[in-house]
């Protein structure tokens, strides 16, 4: 019964006269498969060797080359950047020194100006003080003069009021003597 079912299955699946269960062991199809396999292998081989492999290896070589070039260029740029940085540092140092110098100069100039202004101011102050002293002295002298005048006049008037004859010269001498005490 099983064989019958088996046979029926074979008949259903069957092709040709073979009653072989496994299609893999159906030798009548072998030449066909081998022929088409050979054809497709040759096709793939031709596609690969004629078109694909040169293209891919070309691209890979080109990429490796451009990567190397880029690395070299990057190295060069790095060198340049280093140089630029050094130049910048140098310029910065110079500018700093310049600034230092300008600051020093300015400071010196300012000190000079200051000294000059101080000297001028001191001279002026001294002149003013001398002037003031001179005027004070004058004022004092004139004040003493007027005091002597007043004393003489007062003494003359007193003497006349008391009924005496005033000797002007004697009164002057007396007042001078008293004032000198």
């Amino acid at each position: 019964m099983a064989t019958e079912a088996e046979d029926a299955a074979h008949a259903a699946a069957g092709h040709g006269a073979e009653a072989v269960g496994m299609p893999q062991l159906d030798f009548s199809t072998f030449p066909n498969q081998i022929f088409w396999l050979a054809v497709s292998l040759v096709l793939i081989y031709l596609i690969l060797t004629r078109i694909a492999l040169p293209r891919i290896s070309g691209v890979l070589a080109e990429r490796a080359g451009s990567i190397t070039n880029d690395l070299l260029a990057a190295e060069e740029l790095k060198q340049k950047a280093k140089e630029a940085e050094a130049a910048y540092e140098r310029a910065l140092a110079e500018a700093r020194a310049e600034a230092q110098r300008i600051v020093g100069e300015t400071r010196a100039e300012m000190a000079r100006d200051l000294a000059a202004a101080t000297a001028r101011a001191e001279a002026e102050i001294a002149a003013r003080a001398a002037e003031s002293e001179r005027r004070i002295a004058a004022i004092r002298a004139s004040a003493m003069e007027s005091v002597a005048e007043v004393a003489r006049d007062t003494a003359l008037a007193l003497v006349e009021a008391l009924g005496g004859r005033a000797e002007e010269a004697a009164v002057h001498a007396a007042v001078e003597a008293r004032l000198r005490e």
């Binding site: 092709h15 040709g16 009548s28 199809t29 030449p31 066909n32 498969q33 081998i34 022929f35 088409w36 396999l37």
Partner: peptide
């Protein structure tokens, strides 16, 4: 039905 060596089959 016949499968010759050149027949286009599902293998092909």
């Amino acid at each position: 039905d016949a499968i010759h060596w050149y027949t286009p089959t599902n293998v092909t």
